[in-house]
Design a protein around this nucleic acid. Structure first.
Length: 574
RNA sequence: CGAGGUGUAGCGCAGUUUGGUAGCGCGUUUGGUUCGGGACCAAAAGGUCGCAGGUUCAAAUCCUGUCACCUCGACCA
């Protein structure tokens, strides 16, 4: 590709909307064009990157016996009604009517389509197990798109669906796919992607993992043990808290005028936040009832766990007075009967607590739960703490970090096959429901995440396996006959040798050309200049600055071909 | 959904308080001089000031409505 012909444009100024590195570089470098909120057109440079990522995905999916298929983007709503998700999912599922007035949806994921395809085709146990996958457009009407290609409404996804006749078989295949995912990320140049246990959310099912690229800019909070291999999404991380010694103090009701926050009360009574009981009020969607979560003062409520426990969407509650609850002074003892309560496991760790007395301006101190309230059921609905106790190895080695979710895998069970009536005839002649797993990776998000993880101050440093081109030739002074003749010839020769070359043949200043080269992030750079040729050298360097040599012009082609081969091999021999 | 912010040339912005000819830098085009880290000179093209309505002799500017986009928040009683 010659630079002069490439449809794209780079910018010196950072657009005002861009916040994170990948977004900044991909806009400044002319990688994509914003069309609407969370909707982008991709320029050739990005399409080349995503095509390479897709090729790696194909190879790895085929390697675990995947069969590539293609599901529709727009589909009749009836199959979504069968699975129950037409009504269960909110407005992120785009619904519309066709000319006949029939309900339609835009595919945001394709479990329904996969079951619809497979249910009449795979009717005998002999056909199982199998996996089908596609690489295709999804549309999710996200409440808030952001970060360039990190969170968008329309995106390309590799989604795979496996079908099995037993839990053991699903489990086995699930880990096979887990391994395939590790290979995909490693081959894409980000082997540091980790998998964490996660919540299955709207997909349903029990066991699920997310693949996370750790970066402080990530949207998800992760809990990782620095001593063992425990890793979990904050949403599901099991919590274990330290227990303090000490016997129960005497119960005492104390005047705490106008002290409505944990900080105020604890400071006033000379107690640590961890010696108090915090009350957090929620309204349940299912029956509009009020639910108070009691949790240790230094721990935060994990709403995902709470939602799963209560089996209801929860919202922060307001207008507590109407329910006879004294805001700011809520405690376990003396609440109105109709108010639901949840006690977090963190409350098992102290003999005495400071807590609200359910009376304006009063708190209790020396509150012992079993003595002063009676036996209660403790539930894990809290968030893990930095430096907290690892639930696996028991050491105080938990670290909190953030990550971008670049892929996920789910053991769905019969969530879709049962609701959509998929059956097969088993060996013994009985009809049975198969079980499923599903496995997804966002292509554009992965590209942006790689940029996030592999860049310097000047632009992306694309791993060679996914780089838009492998080599860039910068011809300084392409008006110089000698330079042009050499660069033209090198361009042809490298291409003949199977190397992907971007040839910057523009007549622009060196600084301009180098800045653009930094933004294109191509791993190998060849600089041809009149000065160099006069001195009998051509400069070859790597974008990551790990290598820079002045070579004799006649040896450049061979050196570069070998360099590219070696760099590719390093990423592909996993 | 809540709070805040922004809409003026492809990009970055000024002008709005106090109404009076539509501006600057980058980029683009043409000519010339430069040439190893975003060069210089000269000329030129490019804008229904987000949209609709209102006030006024006159609106980018004031008023009303609306749309779009951005950031933060979606708990700490």
């Amino acid at each position: 590709m010659k630079f002069t012909q490439m449809l794209t444009k780079r910018f010196k100024d950072t657009p005002a909307d861009c916040q994170i590195a990948s977004h900044i570089f991909m806009i400044r470098g002319g990688y994509m064009k914003n069309v609407g909120n969370g909707i982008y057109s991709l320029f050739p440079i990005t399409k080349r990157i995503t095509s390479k990522i897709e090729a790696i995905m194909r190879e790895e999916m085929n390697r675990i016996d995947g069969q590539e298929v293609l599901f529709p983007v727009a589909m009749p709503a009836n199959i979504w009604k069968e699975s129950g998700r037409f009504d269960a999912i909110g407005s992120e599922l785009v619904r519309f009517k066709d000319r006949g007035g029939n309900d339609m949806v835009l595919g945001m994921t394709h479990e329904e389509a996969a079951v619809q395809m497979a249910r009449e085709t795979a009717d005998s146990y002999t056909q199982f197990p199998f996996m089908i996958y596609q690489i295709q457009t999804k549309f999710r009407d996200e409440p808030r798109a952001r970060g360039g290609l990190i969170r968008v409404r329309e995106f390309t996804m590799k989604d795979a669906y496996s079908f099995h006749t037993s839990k053991e078989d699903l489990e086995q295949y699930y880990w096979k796919c887990h391994k395939a995912y590790e290979r995909i990320f490693a081959r894409c140049g980000v082997p540091e992607v980790i998998s964490v246990k996660s919540d299955s959310g709207m997909m349903g099912g029990k066991v699920a993992h997310e693949f996370m690229l750790c970066t402080p800019l990530g949207e998800d909070s992760l809990v990782v043990c620095s001593d063992c291999d425990f890793r979990a999404n904050m949403e599901t991380a099991e919590c274990v808290y330290d227990t303090a010694d000490g016997s129960a103090e005497e119960l005492d009701k104390v005047l705490t005028p106008e002290m409505k926050t944990i900080e105020d009360v604890c400071a006033f009574l000379g107690k640590a936040k961890s010696d108090s009981i915090k009350a957090v009020a929620y309204r349940l969607e299912t029956d509009d009832s009020l639910c108070i979560v009691f949790i240790r003062g230094d721990i935060e409520v994990n709403e995902t766990k709470l939602r799963n426990y209560l089996k209801s969407e929860v919202y922060p509650a307001e207008e507590l007075e109407k329910e006879g609850v004294v805001a700011g002074f809520i405690g376990p003892k003396g609440l109105p009967e109709k108010v639901k309560t949840v006690y977090d496991v963190s409350l098992k760790t102290r003999a005495s607590y400071v807590c609200g007395a359910n009376e304006e301006n009063y708190h209790f101190k020396g509150f012992n739960i079993s003595r002063d309230l009676g036996e209660v059921q403790f539930v894990d609905v809290g968030k893990a703490l930095e430096g907290g106790i690892c639930p696996v190895c028991g050491k105080k080695t938990l670290k909190l970090t953030r990550g971008i979710e670049v892929g996920n895998i789910f053991q769905l069970g019969d969530r879709y096959t049962a609701s959509m009536g998929m059956k097969y005839l088993d060996r013994d002649g009985s009809l049975k429901t198969p079980i499923m797993g599903c496995y997804g990776i966002g292509v554009g998000r992965l590209a942006a995440s790689i940029c996030e993880a592999r860049h310097d101050d000047y632009g992306p440093i694309w791993p060679i396996s996914i780089a838009p081109w492998q080599v860039q030739i910068c011809a300084l002074r392409s008006d110089d006959e000698q330079v042009k003749a050499y660069a033209d010839k090198l361009y042809d020769e490298l291409q003949d040798a199977g190397i992907e070359v971007l040839y910057d043949d523009r007549q622009v200043s060196a600084g301009f050309m180098f800045s653009d080269a930094d933004l294109t992030g191509i791993p190998v750079r060849i600089v041809v200049s009149p000065k160099g040729l006069k001195a009998g050298t051509v400069e070859v360097s790597k974008r990551d600055k790990s290598y820079m040599e002045k070579l004799a012009p006649e040896t450049v082609k061979q050196s570069v071909v070998e360099m590219v081969k070696a760099m590719l091999a390093e990423l592909n021999n996993i």
